[in-house]
Design a protein around this nucleic acid. Sequence first.
RNA 1: GGACGAUUAGCUCAGUUGGCAGAGCGCUGGCCUCACAUGCCAGAGGUCACUGGUUCAAGUCCAGUAUCGUCCACCA
Length: 880
Amino acid sequence: MNQASSLIPDRYEPAAVEARWYPEWERRGYFRADPDGPGQPFSIVIPPPNVTGSLHWGHALNNTLQDVLIRMKRMDGFNTLWVPGTDHASIAVHVILERQLEAEGRTRYELGREVFLERAWKWKEESGGTIIRQLKRLGASCDWSRERFTMDPGLARAVREAFVRLYDEGLIYRGDYIVNWCPRCQTVLSDLEVEREERDAEFVYIKYGPLTLGTVRPETKLGDTGLAVHPNDKRYAQYVGQTLRIPSVDGEIEIRVVADEAVDPEFGTGVIKVTPGHDPVDFEIGRRHDLPVRTVIGFDGKMTAEAGAYAGLDRFECRKRIVADLQALGLIDRIEPYRHSVGLCYRCKTVLEPLVSKQWYVNVKPLADVARAAVRERRVNIIPRSWSKTYYHWMDNIRPWCISRQLWWGHRIPAWYCEADGSVHVSRADLTACPTCGGPVRQDPDVLDTWFSSGLWPFSTLGWPDDTPELRTYYPTSVLVTGYDILFFWVARMVMLGAHLMKEVPFRDVYLNTLVRDAEGQKMSKSKGNVVDPLGVMDQYGTDAFRFTLAGVAAAGVRDVRISEERIEASRNFANKLWNASRLVLSNLDGYEPGRKTKGARPLPDRWIRSRLAATIRAVRTHLGRYRFNDAASAVYQFVWHDFCDWYLEMAKISLYRASDPAERGRTQDTLVAVLETTLRLLHPFMPFITEEIWQRLPAHGDSIMIAPYPKVARGQADAGAEREMALIMDTVTAIRNIRGEMRISPATTLGVTVRPAPEHAPVLAGATALVETLARAQLSLDPAASRPAGSALAVVGGSELYVRLEGVVDLTAERARLTKEIARADEAIRFLETKLAKPEFVERAPAEVVEREREKLAGQQEVRTKLSASLAWIGEGAR
RNA sequence: GGACGAUUAGCUCAGUUGGCAGAGCGCUGGCCUCACAUGCCAGAGGUCACUGGUUCAAGUCCAGUAUCGUCCACCA
């Protein structure tokens, strides 16, 4: 073995390499953006991970894709910026901290707001730190000098600015409506934060005097302030407008019957009870018919004083009691099993209670119209496009956005209430006294929905509301890469707020990446316990292998992907393959002088591999431009493994080890270095660490591959002639190897092969005898007039025939079997092609080149068939 | 109730404008050939879920069916 290769380990060891390069890149300032720097801007803001622990595979995928794009663009000469940061995740952090407190036997109320917030900040520091470390470990080339957190002072200012502006424009208002209340979290939730789940329930038919109606929530009976039927329902027309006096669990009650379109006469009995205090539909009906709101369930999920004898009971306990009591009073008609969906808190899964309360809202309808148009007019491109329909549907059916939360961790609502005159003041600056009467003021205790601040992220991180160089250079950002699960939560809000407050959309492209599932197709989540720590995977297989795997599964248009360990192993092997190919190159560079002009025409293999490289570069660029990360990754993979390693390196060895002419060796070294160096640059965005490590070991490298140019195809590099000629050589080699394999001939045996070349093949084969001989382990003799020697196997490559001498090597039984199989295969192809070409419509209507191609194929197959069957007959005789 | 997605090799999945069905893993046979056994060479393996339609030509376009999945939705 060569000295150089013995110095480099034969297995790629990622740990040391990764630990060395990341800090070095950071130290040299490669990640840092300069708004005044040269090049077209290309910017990305990170979807800020929640500070709720550590990163999972979805984050790893999402950030790998962003890093691939940003590294590629940086190398390509763009003025790149990737803004990193984290999200305070108001309610999610509450849930975590409250669970911790619960374990200590305490509640947040016992702790008090101030102490709770201290804990929250401490949690944020820990979790945020973990996340940042993980991102760095992943190789993410973010500009850390611009790291942001959604509760940074600057972003807090942006939040206030946005709130005040929207309030002044009348788009933010306060009002009493029915809301989704989580009795555990003790806060309101927006409609989007309600998760639905099918549950089995009882559909209880209760007698209301002369009427009977079904309900799944008998406990809300206590809050009934009306009954409703459909206006066209003749069955009940006589009762509409009447006030009925009917027996109930709390004695005789009076209840008014109204007619409302919301009632479906086909469902149940066609009569519903109206409980405006505890049902969104009933709330609306109540408003239309002026029915009073009676709140019988409180914020704690227990029955209120209004519930009379039932006060203090848990709502579900109350349900059972009411049913029992109705039963006793003979007021239950019947009970049927029923399956329906209930609303759950998206964070803690508690069954929500619809309640009436005073909250802050954004009237998003006007913003939605603008946001809709932005996509419709392609100012924002959603990729894959099919998601735009979902986006439109949501925008079209949008309802007011409830933005207040009865939580402590988050942006406090910038509204102050005067205790003296009751006035409300929304302000950019903190208020200490009432601007109208000078009396004492009290700030609204609530905080904003987390998504309000993340909705401002693309411009708040760039300095808004100030007019900064960053905003001017990098806004709108180039692309947003995120999961489709937060299309409404986040993407839609950013488009609405960006278009409204900045008068310009926040990003040009939205690439919605797939969601990552485990090998069983389960969504990875902590509650399922199937979360595999990405750090462990990176430890085991290396970051580059992990990233390459992630990029490899990111196909456009795919919703979910499963990732298995085998896949990462394959990528690890790929990294190792590249490492060893480089070892081969590096250990054969003695006498090589970088930059020296090589003399003489480039040999075929060199022209071929450069042409293949050109095609690969073109493919990678095209695929990345369309966010087809998997296709880009696979193009490089195929090139490196199969073109470069399997074929080119094997051919290069011939001139490296046995060149008769030193210039020939120099030419090969030149191509080896050039192709490897370019390949490393091409691959760098996917596998940043290993490519840098190898690149640094190559002669005449620059400072860092990170800032080297991204490969472009040189003029004249694509060489169709070389590709065609090499295809012939490769087919010839494969044909001989095929016979060796089928005949079970040892690779150690050199085969004697006589070639009878087709006239057009003759010069190519004559010029590549040494190649074929080495690669196929054969001794070749070319003879245009050759006839089949006795005891030989036949292979047909295009119009050329190969006779492989088997005499004394094996008997011909295997050859007969092989030929029979080949003939059958040819027959099938011939039958298919003949049928096709026999159809006049095909010959007339199909493009000429398609028809011509099929004709040639048929002729070729027929020729092969003739030769094969002649050969079979010949063997039959020979064997006799 | 709507909308969207999936169904292709044993497994996991690509397949762009309709024009020669692919990859990785696994499997079979042979190889420790001086970069790599995390490897090399060769091979087997397909009714592209089903039914119908459009077309010279359909995995690809259209209609429908089945199964699985996701999202949205105020039928209590």
